[in-house]
């Protein structure tokens, strides 16, 4: 691994795979940012969140390893699928792994958990195919 990189290529692959899984499961946009904050973590996470392409339907997981802070930000539409309670449970999962030094494992598990919580079963009665029968 190049000196100074936070994750190895294998770890990055695992993280990207977890993000893809969460997106496919929930239909929301997931993003993970790992780095230090210049100010308070929540405002900084909100600033990053607003830079996303579609913040309303996005979920941002922000991790500040130096400050040992974790922020999960959900947009107005994403919030309908992913409640603050569910986000809190995923945060607890990640917090446990981070405390033992396992950044990658915590993020992978947490993002997958967020995707699973945000999963919505398809509404069969809303399908156009039903009306054709």
């Amino acid at each position: 691994m190049p000196a100074g990189d936070a994750f190895t290529p294998d770890q990055l692959y695992d993280l990207e795979r977890a993000v893809r899984y969460a997106e496919e499961t929930s239909g929301l946009h997931f993003s993970v940012y790992v780095g230090g904050a210049d100010s308070e973590t929540r405002p900084f996470a909100l600033e990053l969140f607003n830079e996303l392409d579609d913040p309303d339907s996005s979920v941002l997981v922000y991790v500040d390893p130096a400050g040992r802070r974790l922020e999960i930000v959900t947009g107005p539409l994403a919030k309908r699928q992913l409640s603050d309670t569910a986000a809190g449970l995923a945060a607890l999962t990640m917090q446990t792994s981070f405390a033992t030094g396992d950044l990658t494992g915590g993020l992978v598990t947490g993002v997958q958990q967020l995707g699973t919580h945000a999963h919505q079963p398809p509404l069969l009665h809303a399908s156009d195919e039903q009306h054709k029968l």
Binding site: R42, G75, G88
Partner: peptide, 13 residues
Amino acid sequence: GVARTTGGASASW
């Protein structure tokens, strides 16, 4: 500049 109500959670370790 767009106001939006966000949700989520916070944690520290």
